[in-house]
Design a binder for these strands. Structure first.
Lengths: 259, 259
DNA sequence: AATTGTGTTCCGCATAGTGGAATTTGTGTT
DNA sequence: AACACAAATTCCACTATGCGGAACACAATT
């Protein structure tokens, strides 16, 4: 019961190891991993061997580990066959056509958002630099929008497990500040990221959710402040909300045209 | 041996299920999976539950399964921190600057190649449509190049487990045809895909391998036949080989500048 | 109402994972 | 070189973990 952090037996352990290696900023060798996960030597060693065997992990020349190619293979499939993303795609393009700025689609996963898709103008940046990337929900447009769509109980629970961190001087770093912000979003229907995650970058977002709100996500239009000012962003608010609504409509139609 | 791949205990079983779902072209519901995997109901059900719990799988409205977002999160990390890709990147760009055509980087994984990176001109196609994608090695430029770098014993073993399939009328569909082709590649240092995988698309490739040849990969320059003819492709051969050599150099330097 | 086809739960049993300790391999030091 | 020290790998008795047959719910069809 609790929160569900149980860790699903053997698979859970394996994933924990994978995650440890994935999240580390520095390369990890065997003993490094051993220090970070609470497991006996022998056990850990076998787990890692299995992960390597399955292609989820591989070893570098210096015995440090890196994530395996199999993950790329799977992710490629996961992306192209993802139902939600597929439905949203045309709407993202439409939003981009009108605004001319970068459009993001992200879903809430625990306390952070995972970017599922993006459409950008003259893409200079590589796609992988965004798609699949996760960012803290509390300081991003889509993140805050998505949270606003959560049922109260769930919202409180999530907020309480956030590890706040200041990225810029406008970042919201307290639960109260975030809570009132969420209320505003619920009222207006739009979330704004006022350079809270990255200096000089701001965005408008709107929430997307399934009927039961088990699934919450968001879309956003992002731009540098020197090209798009706050007034313009506010003006796009309704447009973004409409796109979000259109996506929810499409979902409802494709999933349960019952009657 | 052969290709049965023992299946690493519990983890292996889980991956088998994941793969089954990933490779299916149609959405699978519980019983569909049950039919394709040789497992008792109860067992399968728990395995799937675990996969869902870990975010590796998720359910659609109609109870069919799709790959989970966690895979995207991991893949994003896998890609950006991949050592080989990082080293190769500047060389791919260089190759693209000179030729103006699409450049691919792929590694051999069993009997198919997984594309690790690509650099293309006016990319109209989305990146995910290629990166992470896997294609049969026997009918692609990088695939054949990579195979040519394998030690003989390993090569024979891999070839014997290929499931040939005709994609176009130039596709090589026999082990003998492929074997002699591999010999040619070893001699000349270049592999060609003469519209073997996709009509109207051909490419030049060159092999990349680690010293011990445990790791083999390839790079290629791909183009439509109406824009680039075979002569031009042949002319690029040495250039592609040089790039491959440069990448191998960089790898050796970064990994073992011993002595 | 009966039937067939789904998805889910239960529980005794055996297998697959566990983890402490010993062995081998590798790195740096005098 | 020979050493010492640490890191990586193998071993094996133990038991917790996943296994899987069968019983249970719940829709959809007839």
């Amino acid at each position: 019961m609790g929160r569900g952090e149980s860790g699903t037996g053997t698979l859970g352990k394996a994933m924990e190891v994978l995650e440890t290696i994935a999240l580390s900023s520095t390369p990890l060798r065997f003993t490094d991993v051993l220090h970070r996960v609470d497991q006996p030597r022998g056990t850990l060693h076998r787990q890692i061997s299995n992960l390597i065997e399955e292609g989820l992990l591989s070893t570098r020349a210096d015995n440090s580990y890196e994530l395996g190619l199999t993950l790329l293979k799977f992710a490629s499939r996961a992306w192209s066959s993802n139902q939600f993303r597929t439905i949203a795609e045309p709407h993202l393009k439409h939003l981009h056509d009108i605004t001319g700025e970068t459009v993001h689609l992200g879903v809430l996963n625990g306390v952070d958002v995972i970017y599922l898709d993006k459409v950008e103008s003259r893409q200079a940046v590589r796609m992988y630099s965004q798609i699949g990337n996760s960012a803290p929900a509390f300081c991003t447009g889509v993140g805050k929008a998505a949270m606003a769509a959560l049922p109260d109980a769930e919202l409180q629970s999530r907020i309480s497990s956030i590890a706040f961190k200041r990225y810029t001087d406008t970042t919201l770093v307290t639960t109260t500040a975030l809570s009132t912000e969420i209320q505003d979003i619920r009222q207006s229907g739009n979330a704004f990221d006022r350079e809270e995650h990255e200096k000089d970058i701001h965005c408008v977002a709107a929430p997307i959710h399934s009927d039961d709100r088990n699934f919450v996500a968001g879309i956003s239009v992002t731009a540098p402040i020197y090209r798009v000012n706050m007034d313009q962003l506010i003006e796009w608010g309704p447009l973004v909300r409409e796109s979000a609504a259109a996506i929810m409509d499409d979902m409802a139609n494709r999933l349960g045209p019952k009657a």
